[in-house]
Design a protein around this nucleic acid. Structure first.
Lengths: 257, 257
DNA sequence: TCTTGACTCTTACCTTACGTCATAGCTTAG
DNA sequence: CTAAGCTATGACGTAAGGTAAGAGTCAAGA
């Protein structure tokens, strides 16, 4: 009771295009069961199953050539192929993470350059801008953190705020000098400790005694993706952000708690 | 004091190939400052800077066409382009995560099918196989967990072990039926609670009172990537694994501690 | 029987961002 | 003057198809 499928039927069934089936036929990846007198391709159940397999491996981003090997060479080591592929995927993912961090930095740099000058930063944001930032910050870091920071900042006067911000920047510059070092080294950790103190002042997190470590670690991850909260300034440098994150994580694990 | 560079010099400076510079010239992405009488391309500082920019955006995986737009159309909204690109990257990343989970499942399925039959599973692994598994498990989940599980399993007899394994499988099947539901719903959480109890028996983690929540959450992530510890059986279904992970995380956060 | 519409065939050019020749002209040191 | 090294253009190949173009096939209705 074997059914037969024309190109179009098989195409619709499997979700690929007719052209694709033509291609697979020509490259002998999926040859029809038979041809009619007119030359029409006819596929059977066996071909449908094989197509399913092809599509499975294709979803894993294997090339058609590799898929042919997997399906046709009986001694082919599929597990090794999968493992190799896994490695490649992990590398891709790592690269994407770096790209994303770079892109975020770039976006924020551009925003700052075109929409803000330094004075505005200290004099308070324009209402529209503040609203937009607030919304974005809430989406990214949660309501609680943003509100606490806001309430705290309201109580600070300009001079106090400027002092803290300058201190953060200076710490950033100092850390940047050490970026080739071990993030867990004493020298780096000393700066991180200062940064931690300063950050607590800036973010008003003095009350968070039981979640301090977790929060500070979270802040490190945040540094990886958002330049507004960062000490790297103009430097497009994902490796530095990574370095800072590691240093902060170590500090949180070792010094706190 | 403008320096001039030949194709080769510029190529070496920037790390791209001569062919690439030819291409960029022909597509008007990077046109040399001038041509010598013999037709040789000569580039200046301005071109070098432009090339830097091109390479920057290229690293972000923009197409050359888009880069040309960014650099040449003055009104082009770079920030919007970057945001769009960011979205695409995030999707890519999500897809890769799913692929990795699928690949891991596939690897383990293949291993189980070709190297094991069900009887061996209950009768105890062959020595070589056990050693290989042990090594891999240690790499993935750490020494401590593996050793504890091993010691515990040694004390169980076959019937007891089989009971526990069957119970896990049955819970998996039940959960699968609910996979369209909210992972935090009472119905799902009830099954998860049973699973938690059973898991503690199976893994011998009764002693871990202070780290229970964390451990159980970690187990959820593990379910995403390794089929040997899973209740999904033969089903290649990353969304189900995701569902289970969410359900377990919720359970850990709410019920424990 | 004729026509119409849906389906099919093959051939072939287009896409991205180059790599790899092939062939030929230019420049410069010895 | 010659050999080495640089440069130019042009053409072909890559992966996985998309998009026609031109022509043959099939079933159904008038």
């Amino acid at each position: 009771m074997n059914k037969n499928y024309s190109v179009k039927q098989l195409a619709k069934l499997s979700g690929v295009s007719v052209r694709t089936l033509h291609l697979y036929d020509k490259m002998k990846l999926l040859v029809p069961q038979l041809r009619t007198r007119a030359g029409y391709r006819m596929y059977g159940e066996k071909e449908l199953l094989r197509l399913q397999q092809i599509l499975f491996y294709k979803e894993l981003d294997f090339t058609l050539k590799d898929i042919a090997k997997i399906l046709d060479e009986p001694g082919f080591d599929i597990i090794e192929a999968l493992k190799g592929h896994k490695k490649a995927l992990i590398q891709k993912k790592t690269r994407i993470n770096i790209l994303l961090s770079t892109i975020n930095n770039t976006i924020n740099n551009l925003k700052n350059k075109t929409m803000l000058n330094a004075d505005e930063l200290y004099d308070g944001l324009s209402p529209q801008l503040a609203a937009a930032y607030r919304q974005e910050a809430i989406e990214n870091y949660g309501n609680e953190v943003v509100e606490r920071a806001e309430n705290y900042l309201k109580k600070l006067n300009k001079d106090e705020l400027k002092k803290l911000v300058d201190k953060q920047k200076q710490l950033g510059a100092s850390l940047y000098e050490l970026k080739a070092m071990d993030p867990t080294s004493a020298q780096v950790q000393e700066l991180i400790a200062q940064h931690y103190t300063n950050t607590r002042k800036l973010w008003g997190t003095d009350g968070l005694t039981d979640k301090q470590a977790e929060t500070y670690k979270g802040l490190g991850n945040l540094y990886l993706t958002d330049e507004r909260f960062i000490l790297t300034g103009d430097r497009h440098d994902p490796t530095f952000a990574e370095f800072v994150k590691d240093a902060m994580a170590h500090f949180a694990d070792e010094q706190l708690r």
